[in-house]
């Protein structure tokens, strides 16, 4: 009996993966349509420089969205990633500007500090919300405030600056016009894709999102899987902090306000269901592209700030409505 349930749970994601190929084709088409639209109506959209710009500009959101995908797949949400990113960046900024270290040591220290802060904050979210089965919405809202307050406290609300040159070089490095930081994000997408599709852990995350009770009855510790999902989300916030610092060469305690919403939007536009259990990280990649292309293209077209904000909102709503029909269609 037990093994049979376990088999069902493991089976479920494989079917979802197949469906998600179809889903992703839909999102891919939407992205293609956007790209065509901007290519026709603006002069500079398809120039190599602008493509480089778009890749740079979506990197941070993409990294955050990869972690967010794990959390949303188990039916949770993480509202704290923007604040955690700022907290991690500020602590890493303090670390990297410590006197008495060579550039290599300082950079290593900063990377360790940022990822550690991210992991700890994520783990905290996971442990609290999983242990007491509390809605992650409210726990991570708490963490949003804790991390933002901590970022301001640690930095005294000052911008931290003057990082080693090598760090800045990493932030602006390109290989054939592709920013290295974007490659880092793509590697994270691939790792996440592998974990979610080809490991027992990944399949069980889908299982938890679909039917938590079934996974529990199958003899798996739902608690630790949930903690792991939130920890991964925190880790990506820490990595995003490193990219933020390398790209701008400062650490600002007010960085990342509202980034959580962009990350969630990328995941949802990418076809992952807010109620969990369905979706893919490849969809998240496409979702991040849609948001980035939209933000870039609307400026190139010369639309005013306020109109831009309205259109971005409309696109998010359209994506969710489409998701409703997609779910209905694939279920039948």
């Amino acid at each position: 009996m037990t093994t049979q349930t376990s088999g069902d749970v493991a089976q479920e994601p494989r079917r979802v993966t197949l469906r998600s190929v179809l889903n992703n084709a839909g999102i891919g088409l939407a992205l293609l349509a956007l790209i065509l639209f901007f290519a026709v109506f603006t002069e500079h959209f398809l120039t190599p420089n602008n493509i480089t710009n778009i890749l740079t500009q979506i990197t941070i959101n993409l990294i955050l969205a990869v972690g967010m995908t794990f959390v949303i797949l188990i039916g949770g949400i993480d509202l704290s990633v923007g604040s955690v990113m700022a907290f991690a960046a500020v602590v890493a900024g303090k670390a990297i500007t410590l006197p008495g270290f060579g550039p290599v040591e300082a950079i290593a220290l900063a990377i360790v500090a940022a990822t550690l802060i991210g992991v700890l904050c994520g783990m905290f979210n996971g442990v609290i919300s999983a242990y007491w089965s509390l809605p992650s919405f409210i726990i991570t809202l708490g963490m949003l405030n804790i991390a933002r307050g901590a970022a301001l406290h640690v930095s005294d609300a000052q911008t931290i600056y003057s990082f080693p040159l090598a760090f800045e070089d990493f932030g602006s490095a390109m290989i054939y016009g592709v920013p290295v930081v974007f490659m880092v994000a793509v590697v994270l997408v691939l790792i996440a894709w592998f974990i979610l599709n080809f490991t027992v852990f990944g399949r069980l995350l889908y299982g938890i999102g679909n039917n938590e009770e079934a996974v529990r009855l199958a003899g798996h510790s739902v608690y630790w899987y949930k903690v792991a999902a939130f920890t991964i989300c925190g880790l990506t916030a820490g990595i995003a902090a490193v990219v933020y610092m390398a790209r701008l060469n400062i650490s600002s305690p007010i960085a990342g306000i509202g980034f959580e919403l962009n990350a969630i939007a990328a995941v949802i536009i990418g076809g992952t269901s807010l109620s969990g259990g369905r979706g893919s990280v490849i969809g998240t990649l496409l979702g991040a592209f849609i948001i980035g292309v939209l933000a870039n293209g609307l400026i190139l077209i010369g639309l005013s700030d306020f109109m831009r904000q309205m259109i971005t909102g409309v696109v998010i709503i359209i994506a969710v409505v489409l998701d409703y029909y997609r779910a209905k269609y694939t279920a039948s």
Binding site: T42, N53, Q57, I60, L248, S252, A255, I299, L300
Partner: peptide
Amino acid sequence: RTAHWETEEANTVFSNMLTA
């Protein structure tokens, strides 16, 4: 254009303005 007083947003918004 506005960048809401913030470094990262100014970086993004201005890059795009420069492209245009």
